[in-house]
Amino acid sequence: MQSHSRLMQLKVKDLMVHKRRLVEVPDNATLADALNTMTILGIKPVANRVRAVPVAAKPGQWLGAGGSMIVESDKQSGSARKQYIGVVTMLDVVAHIAGDDGESGLDKKMAAPVSSIIGHCPEGLSLWSLNPNTRLLV
């Protein structure tokens, strides 16, 4: 009963690692850029639990992850600044590198834009946004 009580007190922000700002890559970043971003976050991405980064694009040009419209607006004007269209995961990276899509050579595969890699694995299309103050249990 005590663990249930503890869970009722937890909020989304309590689960956030290091409570830092969101790190993302633009839709035109290459796969190499995305992996570099994951590495900057931690010397060993998998060891430091950095297994995915969100992908941001200009608003209005994309359907978005799972049909959602997760948009970041300018705080002063209220106009849309960017839209999150999905997440590039380590699983997407592995699937793209190992896949037989007609591309040959690691350099060519690493130069692919992340927007073409999103969704190799379904998890990359499952983008959720939660308020940090949302309780885990209601």
Score class of each variant (00 low, 15 high):
67 G>F: 13
63 L>T: 14
38 M>L: 15
27 D>I: 08
127 L>P: 09
71 V>F: 03
87 V>Y: 00
138 V>A: 10
23 V>A: 11
117 I>C: 06
8 M>L: 06
129 S>E: 05
19 K>H: 07
2 Q>G: 15
109 K>W: 10
102 G>H: 03
55 V>F: 10
45 P>N: 07
35 L>Y: 11
118 I>S: 00
82 K>Q: 09
127 L>W: 11
4 H>A: 13
22 L>Q: 09
68 S>G: 12
49 R>A: 06
87 V>P: 04
81 R>P: 02
27 D>L: 05
29 A>G: 11
88 V>S: 01
88 V>Y: 00
72 E>Q: 14
85 I>P: 01
29 A>D: 11
126 S>L: 11
36 N>E: 14
97 I>S: 01
112 A>E: 14
35 L>M: 15
30 T>A: 07
127 L>D: 13
97 I>E: 05
107 D>W: 04
64 G>Q: 00
50 V>T: 14
70 I>P: 03
86 G>T: 02
18 H>A: 13
135 R>W: 09
131 N>V: 00
66 G>D: 14
39 T>R: 13
130 L>C: 07
120 H>R: 14
94 V>N: 06
15 L>H: 12
73 S>V: 00
138 V>H: 09
27 D>Y: 08
68 S>H: 13
74 D>L: 05
113 P>H: 13
56 A>L: 02
55 V>N: 06
109 K>Y: 11
72 E>D: 08
110 M>L: 10
57 A>D: 11
111 A>H: 00
46 V>R: 05
11 K>E: 06
105 G>P: 05
39 T>D: 05
122 P>F: 15
124 G>K: 00
53 V>S: 12
113 P>S: 14
59 P>L: 03
135 R>G: 10
122 P>M: 13
121 C>F: 13
119 G>P: 03
40 I>N: 13
137 L>A: 09
66 G>Q: 11
83 Q>M: 08
106 L>R: 10
25 V>Y: 02
90 M>P: 00
63 L>P: 07
105 G>Q: 01
5 S>Y: 08
100 D>S: 05
91 L>A: 12
31 L>T: 03
121 C>V: 15
109 K>C: 11
108 K>H: 03
97 I>V: 12
25 V>H: 02
89 T>G: 06
88 V>Q: 04
125 L>N: 08
33 D>W: 00
71 V>C: 04
54 P>V: 14
107 D>K: 15
66 G>T: 11
18 H>I: 03
78 G>A: 04
69 M>I: 03
91 L>W: 07
29 A>S: 15
84 Y>V: 10
69 M>L: 09
92 D>K: 00
89 T>Q: 04
19 K>R: 14
74 D>Y: 04
66 G>E: 14
83 Q>V: 02
118 I>M: 01
88 V>A: 04
90 M>I: 12
109 K>N: 08
31 L>P: 01
56 A>M: 09
132 P>S: 01
45 P>E: 08
39 T>V: 08
41 L>V: 07
87 V>I: 13
104 S>W: 01
128 W>A: 03
81 R>E: 15
76 Q>G: 07
12 V>Q: 12
2 Q>C: 12
7 L>T: 09
9 Q>K: 15
52 A>H: 02
9 Q>L: 15
71 V>K: 03
